[in-house]
Design a protein around this nucleic acid. Sequence first.
DNA 1: CGCCGAGTTGAACTGAATCAAGAAACGTGG
DNA 2: CCACGTTTCTTGATTCAGTTCAACTCGGCG
Lengths: 190, 190
Amino acid sequence: MEAFFSTIEKLIVLDSASRQAFAAIMQYHEFPKGHLLVKPGTVCHSIFFIEEGLTRTYYEKDGKDITDWLSPENSFACSIVSFITRRPDRRGIEALEPTRVWTIHYNDLETLYTTHHSIERMGRLIVSSGLVQLQMRFDDLHFATAAERYATMMKQTPSLLQRTPLHIIASYLGITQETLSRIRAQHILL
Amino acid sequence: MEAFFSTIEKLIVLDSASRQAFAAIMQYHEFPKGHLLVKPGTVCHSIFFIEEGLTRTYYEKDGKDITDWLSPENSFACSIVSFITRRPDRRGIEALEPTRVWTIHYNDLETLYTTHHSIERMGRLIVSSGLVQLQMRFDDLHFATAAERYATMMKQTPSLLQRTPLHIIASYLGITQETLSRIRAQHILL
DNA sequence: CGCCGAGTTGAACTGAATCAAGAAACGTGG
DNA sequence: CCACGTTTCTTGATTCAGTTCAACTCGGCG
């Protein structure tokens, strides 16, 4: 659980009352590789803090499997749209490795938001940082070529490239597996 | 200013103390068509609530002008990444029509966040709703064709299509003006 | 009138998808 | 420890959506 607090400490340092309140609502879980943390087409009721392992958020479109987001250790996994809007979403979350998580339930979090101003602030800062991350990924997708996107990922999260099956990386980048394989072959030659 | 409160009322109803505190920090401005609300390459210090008119958030990439976001009346314009990270960003904001705005300054907002829990909550909810909007646009860009993206826009914000020059819509959708022109021609035939 | 910006249309080109086949790595049970 | 199927990745040939470049139309306006 320390890992969680030291991760969000980059955004905000919580007083000990808030920390304790938070610690009380987090639940520890372990999931095997392949386990579904959130089933596609359901409401996502929790945020998962990944202590160890790797998950992907994904959905189906026209029979194709599309990976939306990757969450390695010390990051969050959540079907954001569903969690915020409280509606079912096609997105599911799957463990790509044996994964240990701290689960934060929506209702518990709402309660803490109301009772602790500092946790409400933490929530705002986490969502803000999520927005910045998504915006940067959006920019990448908006007007960068496949090779540029791969290069960005190489630079920012090289370790993910080694741990994650190619077809998943490919759809994460918005390209096909074959194209990614070719781009990679090019890279090695340089 | 009523327009502002009734817009955010969809997210949260503020008590009158918070409303007054908020009203005290908002500044009214009018800008002519073509005016730069935020200059590219600078830090964005304000959120703009568009009471009337239309702005675009844009940037240059490889000499091309790319429109990132469109903000019509009763919505917000902001160079989000810069505003949150407090760093300069290539993004600028330009008025596409004569525009009337309520400006909310970063420092003032920070003060209110600290003094009013309900405004901190409002901030979290606004950012959350921005995140959902961006996520939906991201999905569209991730694995939809140009024609699908146009269709989405036709459905969701048809009025924007009529008010905005074609080359701006095109880069907003991530395609060229020529392609958009052809897609549009197809649509008329159906 | 002639110019100018906005939009359309055409033809050639290209990056990436698709379809198809095979190679390499991996795990599992005999 | 090997044989087997399965998953993962690569490579090639073809096709296609969308870009690029260029010319042209149309409506407004000094």
